[in-house]
Design a protein around this nucleic acid. Sequence first.
RNA 1: CGGGAAGUAGCGCAGCUUGGUUAGCGCGCCUGGUUUGGGACCAGGAGGCCGCGGGUUCGAAUCCCGCCUUCCCGACCA
Length: 469
Amino acid sequence: MAAQSVLTPQSQDFPRWYQDVVAKAELADNGPVRGTMVIRPYGYAIWERMQSEIDARIKAAGAKNAYFPLFIPESYFSKEAEHVEGFSPELAVVTFAGGEELAEPIVVRPTSETVIGGFMAKWIQSYRDLPLLLNQWSNVVRWELRPRLFLRGTEFLWQEGHTAHVSYEDASAYAMKIHREVYDDFLLNVLATPSYLGIKPPSERFPGAVNSMAAESVMRDGKALQMVTTHEFGQNFARAFDIYFQSEEGQAELCYTTSWGASTRLVGGLIMAHGDDAGLIIPPRIAPTQVVVIAVRDEPEVNGAADRIARELALVGVRVELDGGRGSFGRRVTDWEIKGVPLRVEVGPRDLAQGLVTLVRRDNGDKSTLGLDKLALDVPSLLESIQGDLLARAFALRDERTHEVKTIAEAIDAAKDGFARLPWDAVAGEGEIALNAQGVSVRCLQRPDGSIPLSDIERGLSCLVAKAY
RNA sequence: CGGGAAGUAGCGCAGCUUGGUUAGCGCGCCUGGUUUGGGACCAGGAGGCCGCGGGUUCGAAUCCCGCCUUCCCGACCA
């Protein structure tokens, strides 16, 4: 670990640490317009890894990618009452284009339920067309008042899935499938950020939804971050957009629709869930670069060996980068630490004389040596151990930051450290207002065994409350 | 969008109170050399519409007004 950090320590000022990491790891910059973000190559590489992992899971769940336009007629928005009401404060609207005032204003999409709903109505004729399972990767615009890089911005990148089903049960089951098999699986097995899965209380529901599910993760400062969401719309959007199908009995019936999304906010979650005072810590399965091979000196034998090692690792499927020996060793090491590369392979004259390399783990700083002949076999399995250890560490953080309480007052106190779990009956209504007054919100509702309820009308639910990003 | 703070070289800052030589410092960057196993050292060098626009003045980084952007705290949200 670096003797003196180049970053503001987390314990001193966590938000400042976050900004320092984003800048020094070269992830992103602020764009010229408030709330916009320039994603730099290393930050974008992380997002591309996320996209490919999530996209594969979405496809495995049967949905297909498509693309719908950025511009949406304003009239579409007026069709679903709660949806307009919820989104109107953050809409960007085009009223002037092509040198003249537009007859009908155009909304820059904040989400695509409305356009997609219109086309679902056109494409769905019969129950045989269902379920219709669509997904799109796109940017969206929501006029945010307090932007923070990756966590909240006026424009961000995401994936939005939209589906239509014949029944409430089918829609609900598919939403649950996405939430578990796409999102939770990705969060657990790739990002190593274990989450609390549950449903949103009515106050936190997506505008127009009958049920919203969330995955809430614990950041290293104890605050909560909503990583993804999945919504069930019942027949609300189907009614607004005339999404009918003809049933087996020949009756015209309204579809049941869902939507679900994961955004570039996940990059922020990754940073805050794993990072330490020396910088990012990226779990190997998501890391754009899993191993950096560092030539300790800029000498032909050392560089040659480092190059051979990098090639050998690449051949067995490791995402590897080579750091030639130019520049001071300490400086180069620190830079790779800030970037969170999971494993360093250091190659110097002393190692080579013994036919070894030095391995250094980013997550715990452990150093070890390994015979050159064992690299191809041992490095991939070491990466897997790092992945496992990071997951275990994240679980431990989540558990030690979660407190079982009984009253609102205790919950407010516990929220200074992390999450509080208490009976939903003790919160619903005025309790939620009291929590909100202290900057604490209900993150999600769960069954007593931690599973996801089908609806907030289920009895005996517990809730998780916390301060949130 | 309300309340606070701030914008001077890529980054961090001084200068502004009390207007007046050529706007400084540290880090980084470039060149040469010595170095290289945890942020190296020496020498030389490049780099500034002092956030933007207007005003006051013989003269503005400095004083006044407006706007933009950033950070913190709230209200609203992936």
